Amino acid sequence: MKTAAALVLLLGAGTAHAQTSVAFYGLVDAAIVVEDGGTAGRVTKVTSGAAAASRFGLRGVEELGDGMAAFFTLEGGTKIDTGEIDAAGTIFNRQAYVGLRTRFGSVALGRQYTPYHTAMVSIVDPFNTGYAGSAKSLFPHNGTNIRTSNTITYATPKKNGFDGELAYSVGEQSRSAAGRQFGGAIGYAAGPLAVRLVYNNKNTDVAANGATPAVDRSIGRNILLAASYNAGWIKLHSGISSDKGDNAAPLINANNPYGGVRPTPSTDGRSYLLGISAPVMGGTLLASVLHKDDRTRFNQDANAWGIGYLYALSKRTGLYAAYGHVDNRNGAGYTVANNTESGSGDTAYNLGVRHSF
């Protein structure tokens, strides 16, 4: 936090000279989490970021004239339960990018969210990929499906409700495509309706390391169709994801949480979600049902559902409670995740508080 404070002072000192608007912001989230159903038995803990990852960050914009502006974001995660930085050896592990915006769109370079993640959070999942009801339990939404380093992005301006985005992540491996990833999205959002079609492609080759030769694997591909409709008294959410190839749909908990024969991550599957969010008794009710259709010979399908309630004490502070459950078939290994943890069993409860600044 001392580093972040020093950066605030440094950037603040340059504000008057550069006419740049700089903001320091953050989110603090902690919950009591109870997990059950795995070989670890019932686990009770205090978790940082069950609803949304705790974070601090700096973001700024400088207007350059003629419709052009420079912008940046530096955002790091922190663990409220222990006070640690979220990822060892990094400060701004969540987002770190700089870019230019013009009337023809915006370009940014650095560590950024993928188009797949943006659609999942903003359209598909009523839980915004957080809480015990998170779509992460069955949808391939972890690792490089969320954010990528060494990334170049382009976003079109929105016109008549339509917009698009492209993202390309450089693998930075000598004579190898390992780690290379690209994706894009086209969408329409106007009035109560939002629809988005997303494509994600990641090379899962393993680059050579010294005397160890490279390992050729397959390309993992994700195609996501996202849609939501806000009727005022209720908002409907839906998503269908088609996932093919090696590492296209890794298990969110790869540690064999149920014991026995280790589950096999699907290399050909579909994920489905239907959900709602609605104002109820001064708060917001969230609910969703999910299905995983594994089309490989293992046929490791799963069903899941979640329910939650958010209650705002103010514009910045709120309380929440959530419950999620997964029903695995044929030795599948899906667990009930939240925003920051993969989960250890087929059932989980959350009771927490969050504050933004």
Rank of each mutant, 00 (worst) to 15 (best):
T3F: 14
A13N: 10
S21H: 14
V22M: 10
A23M: 12
A23G: 12
Y25H: 13
G26Q: 06
D29F: 08
D29L: 03
V33Q: 15
E35I: 11
D36V: 03
D36F: 08
D36S: 15
G38V: 11
T39W: 14
A40Y: 09
R42L: 10
R42T: 15
S48C: 01
A50P: 03
A52E: 04
S54E: 05
S54I: 02
R55D: 02
G57F: 06
R59C: 01
G60W: 00
V61L: 12
E63M: 12
E63R: 15
G65S: 11
D66N: 13
D66E: 13
G67Q: 04
A69I: 08
F72R: 09
L74G: 09
G76Q: 09
G77L: 06
I80E: 08
I80A: 13
T82S: 12
I85F: 12
N93T: 00
N93Q: 07
Q95L: 14
Q95K: 11
Y97I: 10
V98Y: 03
V98N: 01
V107D: 00
L109E: 05
R111F: 05
Q112L: 11
Q112D: 02
P115G: 02
Y116V: 01
V121K: 07
D125V: 05
P126L: 03
F127I: 01
G130F: 07
F139G: 01
N142F: 14
G143R: 02
G143W: 04
T144F: 11
Y154W: 14
A155F: 00
T156E: 07
P157F: 08
G161W: 00
D163P: 10
Y168H: 10
Y168V: 01
S169N: 06
G171W: 11
R175S: 12
A177R: 15
F182K: 09
G183Q: 06
I186Q: 03
A189D: 13
A190D: 07
P192Q: 05
L197K: 10
L197R: 08
V198S: 02
V198W: 13
N203C: 00
D205C: 10
V206L: 15
A208M: 04
N209T: 06
A214Q: 05
S218R: 15
S218P: 00
S218H: 13
G220W: 09
N222M: 04
N222S: 05
N230S: 06
G232E: 04
L236P: 06
S238K: 05
I240F: 15
D243C: 14
A249N: 09
A249M: 06
N255I: 00
P257S: 01
G259C: 05
G259K: 10
G259L: 08
G260S: 08
G260T: 12
T264V: 15
P265D: 08
D268K: 14
G269S: 15
S271P: 00
L273F: 07
T284A: 10
L285Y: 10
S288A: 15
V289W: 13
V289H: 07
R295Q: 13
D301L: 04
W305G: 00
G306F: 09
G306R: 02
G306A: 02
I307R: 03
L310G: 01
A312Y: 05
K315H: 07
R316C: 02
T317C: 03
G324E: 02
G324T: 03
D327S: 12
N330F: 05
A332H: 04
T335K: 01
N338Y: 14
N339D: 13
N339H: 15
G345Q: 09
G345M: 07
T347G: 13
T347I: 06
L351E: 00
